[in-house]
Amino acid sequence: MESAIPLHLETPRTRHKRVPDDYQPPYPSFVARYKPSVNRVVMAYFGLQYRGTAAAAATDALAEIAARFAAEGGPSHWDRAQYVDQAGYENVVSVAYWDDIARFDKWFASAREAWTGAQPEGIGTFIEVLRPTVARHETLFSSLGRPEGVAAISGGMSGEVQEHAYWGGMRDRIPLSQTGPMSPGGNPELIRDGARLRVKAHDNLCLIRSGQDWSDTETSERKLYLDDVEPVLREGMDFLRDDGLGIGCYANRYMRVLAAGGDASEKSYGQSWWKSLAALERWAESHPSHVRIFGAAMKYLSTLGPSAKLRLYHEVTVAAADEQFFEYLNCHAKTGMLAAVETVAA
Rank of each mutant, 00 (worst) to 15 (best):
G122D: 11
W78K: 02
G124M: 08
R112V: 03
L62T: 07
D99G: 01
P75G: 05
R103E: 11
V84Q: 09
A102V: 08
A61N: 08
S94R: 07
S76C: 10
F104R: 03
T116P: 07
A109Y: 05
A111K: 01
D79V: 06
L130N: 10
E113G: 08
Y89N: 13
D99V: 13
S76G: 15
E128N: 04
Y83K: 02
R112P: 07
G74P: 06
G73L: 06
G73D: 08
A102W: 02
A87G: 11
T133P: 11
W98C: 05
E64C: 09
E113H: 06
Q86H: 15
P120G: 10
Y97E: 07
R131H: 11
T133W: 10
Y89R: 03
S94F: 12
G73A: 03
A109H: 04
F104E: 01
A102K: 07
G73N: 04
W98N: 01
A71C: 09
V84A: 06
Q86M: 11
A102D: 11
V129K: 02
A67T: 11
R80K: 13
G117R: 07
W78V: 03
P120K: 06
I65S: 02
W107H: 00
Q86I: 10
P120L: 07
A70S: 13
L130P: 11
F69L: 01
V84R: 13
E64T: 13
P132R: 00
E64P: 13
A61H: 11
E121W: 04
H77A: 13
G73T: 08
S94W: 12
T125D: 10
T125R: 06
I65E: 02
A61Y: 08
W78C: 07
V92D: 02
S110I: 00
F104M: 03
V95T: 14
W115H: 06
R131F: 14
L62W: 09
F104P: 10
A70D: 14
Y83E: 15
P132I: 00
A63G: 15
E72G: 07
D105A: 04
I123G: 08
I65V: 06
Y83I: 11
A63M: 15
G122N: 05
D79W: 15
T116E: 05
G117I: 00
A111Y: 05
D105S: 10
R112N: 12
G117Q: 04
E113L: 09
I101W: 01
E90N: 13
P120W: 07
D105H: 04
A96W: 02
S94Y: 15
P120A: 08
Y97D: 03
V84S: 09
Y83D: 13
K106D: 10
P75E: 10
A66H: 13
E113M: 10
V95P: 07
D79A: 10
D100C: 02
E72M: 04
P75D: 10
V84M: 04
P132H: 02
W107Q: 00
I123C: 09
A109W: 00
W115M: 02
V95A: 07
A66R: 13
A109L: 06
P132M: 02
G117S: 04
A70V: 01
R68P: 09
F108R: 01
W115G: 00
W78E: 05
W98I: 09
I127D: 07
W107K: 00
Y97I: 08
